[in-house]
Design a binder for these strands. Sequence first.
DNA 1: TTGAAAGCGATACCAG
DNA 2: CTGGTATCGCTTTCAA
Lengths: 346, 346
Amino acid sequence: MKKPEKSVNVRSLAKKAGVSVATVSRALRQPDTVAPHTREKILRLVEKYRFVPDGRAANFSSQRTGLVGLIVPTISNSIYAEFTEAIQSRLQAAGPSLLIVNANYSAEIERDIIRKLIESRVEGVILTGYRRDASLYQLLEHYRIPFVVTWAISPKRSIPSISFDNHAAAAEATEMLIKLGHRRIGLICGVAAINDRASMRLEAYQSVLEKHRITFDETLVSQQPFEIEAAAEAATRLMSNPKPPTALFCANDIQALGALFACQRMKIRVPEDVSIIGFDDLPIVRTANPALSSVHVPARQMGNAAADALIAAARQQTPIKSQIIPTELIMRASTAPLKHSKGTRR
Amino acid sequence: MKKPEKSVNVRSLAKKAGVSVATVSRALRQPDTVAPHTREKILRLVEKYRFVPDGRAANFSSQRTGLVGLIVPTISNSIYAEFTEAIQSRLQAAGPSLLIVNANYSAEIERDIIRKLIESRVEGVILTGYRRDASLYQLLEHYRIPFVVTWAISPKRSIPSISFDNHAAAAEATEMLIKLGHRRIGLICGVAAINDRASMRLEAYQSVLEKHRITFDETLVSQQPFEIEAAAEAATRLMSNPKPPTALFCANDIQALGALFACQRMKIRVPEDVSIIGFDDLPIVRTANPALSSVHVPARQMGNAAADALIAAARQQTPIKSQIIPTELIMRASTAPLKHSKGTRR
DNA sequence: TTGAAAGCGATACCAG
DNA sequence: CTGGTATCGCTTTCAA
């Protein structure tokens, strides 16, 4: 049909239009600065040859990239999907494209990704969690790439974070179970060694138990990857304990659902026999039976705030201010006061 | 207010090392072709100044971008997340980065996205569904960007697709319900007008009914956005029908879960009172109670194949061959033969 | 309002 | 093995 080999570019268009490349560029970028007649002639040709300017070249010469990088541990968990969508739509409105990359809970992969993002000269990076080698932060700073930590509050002042407080949120959930009378409280959470969110939630759980003088029982804790089946198996084990817990705190809703399903299988009633509190407040737990109590995480809000902060930081040279976004413990039908009828289960 | 700092680049490094820019470039890209002494001197400086070469410039001058675009309707549904992850890890191994974009079931957004992808001169595009304006396909062809349709078999030969057969898969599920004796079969699916996958599954359902001389009853069909709550409400309505269905085919597992939860709420037993078949075979439906029967969709395989095809197409100039990947109807505990005990439900 | 030309930062070809 | 340099496609002064 049209040009088989050489692709159209400003030069070829300029020649056809009998103007200079500068004029073509202006007709595209600042149409007002070009005489109407010239402009229309050019735009007609753009249309005719289906010219789509090379964005790389444009960015390259204007010294901008219009790219922001987002590193998440996974997108399979829909809470990250929601977070990601919020960021994306916010950026879309402002201009930049989002490079979403999946680090798969691996520090090594993350290191490579950060390097790649720097190579592509992104104008900002959104990180998940704060725990990573200091050299990575230094590298970002060295290249003057604004970044922000999400999903965890950074303990260092120099590292800006926009997040809710994992420790406080997990503590609130644990406190609630204790207030309901529970003393044997199981915990199912992510693998703390590779996940600082899980690690903080675990710590919160421990410190609340300690505060209430409840002895920490290792056999009531299970760290699992975020697969529902793994969580279901963990719950099955915990509930098979000679002295089973009367409440389960699951530091993630997928795990909470796994626990719920496992209990149903074992004919353990929720909440009569065991209370369950999840974390994330996914839509699905609101619809489940019973509807699960859960810590509502402001994923969307956090994404919006992080995107906005990055956009602002890129525009002006202003540093990013840390923010803490509140969570909310939402009580539903999966939690109940401890019944003091010992040994009457089933 | 520009020129805050001079950033390191091959030129400045070359000067410091007392070599030419060409040698610096070679030391980085083809270390073997540089004398060990020179190479080490250069690499030491690279280390010292934390030099990360500008990938855009590199791509630009080498006429490659190392970018592949993926357009999905949403990533909130974890079946797309799995698909996305498969593509990403496949590409990661081969080199290119993946630009994931969310079209949010909007043709307009998709149009903009495709344009942006062309602007960034991606080396390939993976599309979801085939139904879109022909001009978009033409544009991609015009720019010689290899593309492949996934999640739907393209009816046009000129548009390569790597997918399973929505029609066949949905037909198989419907057939199975009929074989189990069901004649009143409800359907909950996506919004056909904006979703060709939903549209094909709906058609398949209709044609199987017709084949078996079962009159199509509009009141048994509900098209819904993919939110679990919407599906639960739809199921509640369908099951409140004066002559309620004895089976539900849900063209999506999230909707199937919504239906299951709704039935539980209404004290309608699954599968005794109503059979449910889902679509996607998400891990969660295997763990649910009862475990849901579902059409297993080869999301991972499809992603791998699409990524491989694009990589091959980018390397050689060979066109992409369409592929059809089989699905499998997996029967679990949510389906049962129709009981001919009329009116005895509950 | 328009044009000429200098980059942007790396690559790759061709000489030496 | 190394250096000089044209080149990629566009933006952006600076003059005219």
